[in-house]
Design a protein around this nucleic acid. Structure first.
Lengths: 211, 211
DNA sequence: ACTTTTGATGAACTATTATTCATAATATGA
DNA sequence: TCATATTATGAATAATAGTTCATCAAAAGT
């Protein structure tokens, strides 16, 4: 019975899978990997423990899947911006600004990603592999963007790697902070300040040598 | 037997306590709270499990003590700089630079602090309380320093809070990165770049309007 | 209507681990 | 030297949690 179109049963199964993932995301993002049991996830998702194991080999695999989805989503939002053909300063501006929407749409995801990614130690290494790779790719692309901007004389001659890491760390820190209790207006105001801060350093001094 | 001077026995007990804390620090900083058992700490410190409980009420308390010591040490290094009577730009310069020595002297501490502090979730809340309070105090003091600098026309009129958080996040990110494998020269070079980056934003534009 | 397949179930199994406590070792002071 | 106090010990305990599997329910196919 190899049908291309998914049957109702198959669709339902997929829904169930998603429900489990959603429940797990809620729990993991607020309590962390080690403080959430499979029992907890079963309760939250209203399935039995055994059912979870029909979908995922292990707790670790379930968590990994979540983290990867999460990293993927962030990647899909940020990477295209850097790949676009905007001028470099606009790329960076947009890159910073889009973090507002990112935070708004995926608070849970962000919490999971930002709170568990940095500490290699708290979560099984294998779980963070893909997420780390994605993060590294983004950093490289951001660094390349800055370098390109410098070559084209759009940006000042700063240390691209340090600036990249600094901007990245700053955005992460703010997005984590904002996820504690999200207020759209506040986040956007802060991002505007971050934009000002970094573009001030990055932009060629033309009109803004004085405040 | 209420003696003021500690006897040899008492001194030895203190040494044992310190040995246990050191062993725990090694393990926690490389594996994280949840991946280290009391058995592990007992093995590493060459004491029996029961002995650990003669010194510390619980695993959590042992961890908390470590984290607090750690936060205290960082605080003792950084706070005096901001409290000194250097001009504000020099305070900030020194604040940044001293992170090199901080990293060099206390890699384990830094790893523990930076890897466990940010994620409120992975470790019992009570354990991070004091460390967080100390961190908050440092941030406030740094922000006040920037504000003072602005008032005195030493620093440009930036958003003090955002700049503070950005600098803080940047330093943390770099110090965590450097703790993976510490190279003094590299760290100092990077800190010099960070200094340049932030002082570029902060300093009044006098001689350096152009590169 | 009956068989088969698929998915759901949760009690039971196993492993891990924080914690305790009766006992042993050692030092102290008389 | 002996009694007492202090510290160290590690097997035993109890609780938690990841995982399995025999069983059940329901839908699909004939």
């Amino acid at each position: 019975m190899v049908n291309v179109a998914p049957t109702r049963k198959e669709r339902e199964k997929l829904v169930h899978r998603t429900e489990i993932l959603q429940a797990a995301l809620n729990l993991f993002s607020s309590k962390g990997f080690h403080n959430v049991s499979m029992q907890d996830i079963a309760m939250e998702s209203e399935f039995a423990v055994g059912t979870l194991y029909n979908f995922f080999q292990s707790k670790e695999q379930l968590f990994t899947e979540l983290l990867n989805d999460c990293a993927e989503k962030i990647y899909q939002t940020l990477f295209p911006i850097l790949q676009s053909n905007l001028p470099e300063n606009e790329k960076i501006r947009t890159y910073i600004r889009v973090h507002g929407k990112l935070a708004e749409d995926n608070i849970e995801f962000i919490k999971l990603y930002v709170s568990e990614y940095s500490t290699l130690t708290t979560v099984p290494r294998t779980a963070t592999e893909k997420a780390e790779k994605i993060k590294a790719e983004l950093l490289i692309e951001l660094e390349n963007t800055i370098k390109a901007g410098i070559r084209k004389n759009i940006l000042r001659c700063v240390d691209a790697r340090i600036t990249t890491q600094s901007l990245s760390a700053t955005l992460q820190s703010f997005i984590l902070e904002s996820s504690k209790d999200f207020e759209k207006a506040k986040v956007e105001k802060e991002l505007a300040e971050i934009e000002k801060l970094f573009l001030d350093v990055l932009l060629m001094p033309e009109k803004h040598t004085n405040v």
